[in-house]
Simulated assay, not measured.
Amino acid sequence: MNSRRDFLQKLTASAIAIPFLSSANAWDQPVNLVRNPDGPVLRVALMGLGGYASIVAKAMQDCKRAKITGLISGTPSKLSEWGTKYNVPEKSRYNYENFDDIKNNPDIDVVYVTTPNALHHDQVIRVARAGKHAISEKPMALNAKEGQEMVDACSEAGVKLLVGYRMHFEPKTLEVIRMRNADEFGKILFFQGLSGFRIGDPNQWRLNKALAGGGSLMDIGIYSINGARYMVNEEPIWVTAQETKTDTVKFKEGVDETIQFQLGFPSGAVASCLSTYNMNYLDRFFLNGEKGFAELQPSTGYGPIKGRTNKGALTQPHVTHQTLQMDAMAGIILDGDSPVVAVDGAEGVKDLKIIDAIYAACASGKRHELNL
């Protein structure tokens, strides 16, 4: 795909299907059901009213169990425009200086942080200290140390910390996981993850190390990192990595253009992945086992995901990912549901530990051991 952002205009309203581990026959349910459609509604404040927040906001209009009740932005005109569009009263609109006052707002349960990566750490900790649950976009921080501090702050405050892993609720992805859990692929031997696109505006924050924490790996590459873990169903124990940079003007020091990385798992399975900001049409997962295979292509774009296995095409209907995600997160926060693939802060820290190790392996040229 040219860009994950190529899908901005392709979101479509659809029904909702959220399988959970706690529902034994969830896989056989019709697509237009949520686990607990009559349960309480999650009241969400969106922080950072940029491009991705607009996607989440649009998708949430089709949620059964989540609604927008608060807004946080540094741009007054956005607060006014979004407040009118989504019927959020002025008393529930905040800027980055005063959003700690959400502690006194009973109409907000959780804050969804969609600001640049470098801001997540401090903003999530402030949300936790205000007594509200937090959802952080991925990566949840610049490194594992920051991520763990966020987890600890939320734990100390008695609130939940979730990460915006939308693919953990995507129907075709979950069908591959179901098949793997049912041993339909046999022993897993290999995973390949290709995540990349040619990035545009050289002045955007994603190419600013201070805001992004890196380059392609911190944006698109995390999909292959996380995907390797949930597709193989093991935690990697070692990593090797190599960085390639062809444009040192666009991709300055500390901003990676292309990284290839390899992961090893306790069972002997291996993963070979690529993350890039300089190649289009890279959005593919491939899982190989002794008895079968699964391929998703596109695998992580906004949709529709397409896939096949050795048994044929995957035919689960496309559902807007963020609609699924937010209804599922309502169940997690309000009902204590357990998703098929974890989306909590601990999950986010594991990905950050791998990212730290990939960067270290690029610098050293050596294999780095992992202990997740």
Rank of each mutant, 00 (worst) to 15 (best):
T244C: 00
T244F: 09
T244L: 08
K245F: 00
K245Y: 00
K245G: 03
K245P: 00
K245D: 05
T246D: 13
D247F: 01
T248A: 09
T248R: 14
T248N: 12
V249G: 04
V249T: 15
V249R: 15
V249E: 11
K250W: 12
K250A: 08
F251W: 05
F251K: 03
E253V: 08
E253D: 15
E253M: 09
G254Q: 06
G254S: 04
V255I: 11
V255K: 00
V255W: 02
D256Y: 01
D256I: 05
E257K: 10
E257Q: 14
T258K: 14
T258V: 08
I259S: 05
I259H: 05
I259P: 03
I259W: 07
Q260G: 10
Q260K: 13
F261A: 08
Q262T: 12
Q262F: 08
L263I: 11
L263M: 14
G264L: 07
F265P: 06
P266R: 00
S267P: 11
S267H: 08
S267R: 07
G268D: 05
G268K: 03
A269Q: 07
A269M: 09
V270P: 01
A271Y: 05
S272E: 10
S272L: 08
S272D: 15
C273H: 01
C273L: 06
L274T: 13
L274K: 07
L274H: 00
L274D: 01
